[in-house]
């Protein structure tokens, strides 16, 4: 708007104005180039590949229509993988939103000292790679009595648990690492949101005699809704794409598929079995599932807003 009036207003400075018009396109050119090369083109490729199959003993592809998608529907490993990542995503969302939010609420309270030290301490886990965290936790979750988690349950007289060999405890181990790594990051997101909550709201609530808990549930939680939606969206996207931790724990094949995820199946198909068409199809399927879950989530969160 303002640049247009400038153009009409000062015709004499045409040369400068032209430069000013071209400049933004030059500034954004890295995004346009990278978008075309590393996103749009590969995305089209992925969709194309999902309707194709490699002709055996050649480098050529043939069109197979919906065959790959039919394979997905009867692939029971795919469904165990999907069930695993769905449960993982569910638990990470259920824990990694209320807990960091509550911690942020306490950190933000005027009755807390050493705030920046606490923020930093809680943030440090995410600095480690999931691979290294995975290696350390793999041995903390050792089946031997000397593993850290078995030492812990021994305090309650429980016999050593084979953590990474049973479905329930395996899921616990995966969720545990996620909680350990992400509590600090999500807390920082919520803290940034808390800065935008007007202090007067709390003060007037105090005048009305609201308790700390009431302030948390009736002021903080509703005010943090945009951040909750943001964290929920990235948690869902990342949760369904789980790969690193189970890969460290079990590699690409785990007992009874307790650690199989969709991305592990994609990795196997693409880079171990040369089943390119099927790998692409799994990718496209995951893409749509994540989209649908996120849309549903946004819809539900949005509906809530209309209610209050």
């Amino acid at each position: 708007m303002s640049s247009q009036t400038a153009i009409q207003g000062i015709p004499k400075r045409r040369k400068k104005i032209t430069r000013q018009q071209i400049a933004p396109y030059l500034f954004v050119s890295p995004f346009i180039i990278s978008f075309l090369v590393f996103l749009a083109y590969p995305l089209v490729q992925a969709f194309t590949l999902s309707f194709q199959q490699l002709i055996p003993f050649s480098m050529d592809f043939e069109w197979v229509g919906l065959d790959n998608f039919r394979r997905v529907l009867i692939d029971h490993r795919f469904f165990s993988a999907l069930w695993n990542v769905a449960r993982y995503t569910f638990w990470t969302c259920v824990i990694l939103i209320p807990v960091p939010m509550f911690i942020a609420f306490i950190v933000n309270s005027k009755f807390t000292k050493c705030k920046s030290l606490i923020r930093s301490l809680l943030f440090i886990p995410v600095l480690t790679s999931t691979i290294i965290a995975g290696i350390v936790f793999q041995h903390m979750f050792s089946s031997e009595p000397g593993g850290a988690f078995n030492e812990f349950v021994a305090l309650f007289g429980i016999n050593p648990v084979r953590w990474l060999h049973q479905p329930g405890t395996a899921m616990f181990a995966l969720v545990f690492i996620a909680v350990w790594r992400w509590t600090g990051v999500n807390m920082i997101y919520f803290l940034s949101g808390l800065n935008n909550v007007p202090q007067e709201l709390y003060e007037s609530a105090e005048v009305d005699g609201a308790s700390g808990m009431q302030k948390f549930f009736f002021i903080t939680t509703p005010m943090l809704k945009p951040i909750i939606i943001f964290v929920l969206t990235i948690s869902i996207t990342a949760g369904f794409a789980l790969f690193n931790e189970p890969y460290v724990f079990w590699g690409t094949t785990s007992p009874q598929d307790i650690g199989t995820t969709v991305v592990i199946l994609i990795y196997r198909a693409a880079f171990m079995l040369n089943d390119f068409g099927y790998a692409a199809t799994l990718g496209v399927t995951l893409f749509f599932i994540v989209m649908i879950v996120n849309m549903l989530q946004l819809k539900i969160m949005g509906l809530f807003r209309k209610d209050d």
Binding site: P42, L43, L49, A241, N294
Partner: peptide
């Protein structure tokens, strides 16, 4: 919002 994993194979 595009999950990176869908792009692994084409970019490779």
């Amino acid at each position: 919002m595009v999950p990176g994993t869908i792009l692994l194979l084409p970019i490779f």
